[in-house]
């Protein structure tokens, strides 16, 4: 499994206007590398949901993307407040988003479940007061 390239993006805290720019850049790269259309779509949706979470909940952070010949590994690490109950956060419909976030179109409580659904491997580690690290892998052939 040869690595093709690595990309790193700084995701700004509360920078809602720029939210999604990293995911858009990764999508463009995957298109240039001629990955299958459905795989690119799954990867884009999963990363975008994660990027939005970093902006609205995580206080920003670093998105690292490792692109291999047949898969993509994405690590989203923030330094936000952390998730007290991951099991609860994984339930569809559960959200701690404020009304102001909902007015911006997010906070349906579908983000994490949707990321997991799109991914082949999903790991989330969170520590209160230190932040959350989400690592997902998507296989191009699955």
């Amino acid at each position: 499994m040869a690595q093709v390239l690595t990309q790193k993006y700084v995701v700004g805290a509360d920078d809602f206007a720029a939210a999604g720019a990293a995911s858009a850049a990764v999508k463009k790269t995957l298109k240039q590398l001629s990955f299958p259309v459905d795989f690119i779509r799954r990867t884009s949706i999963a990363m975008y949901e994660g990027e939005i979470n970093m902006v609205i909940h995580g206080g920003g952070g670093i998105a690292s993307v490792e692109i291999y010949e047949d898969c993509v590994k994405i690590t989203l690490a923030d330094t936000g407040p952390g998730i007290p109950d991951i099991e609860q956060a994984m339930q569809e419909g559960f959200s701690t988003a404020t009304d102001s976030i909902r007015e911006l179109g997010f906070g349906a409580g579908m983000g994490l479940p949707n990321i997991k659904k799109q991914s082949d491997e999903f790991e989330i580690i969170s520590e209160i007061g230190k932040g959350t690290k989400l690592t997902i892998t998507l296989n191009a052939n699955s």
């Binding site: 995911s23 884009s44 949706i45 975008y48 911006l104 179109g105 349906a108 579908m110």
Partner: peptide
Amino acid sequence: LMSDALAFGENKGLLLTGLNNPQCIRTAEM
């Protein structure tokens, strides 16, 4: 709500929304 839209599975789809900020375009793009 864009996360609801992102759970929509169809290709070649149309998004109807009352959200008039750039994130509806980001969602459509993804």
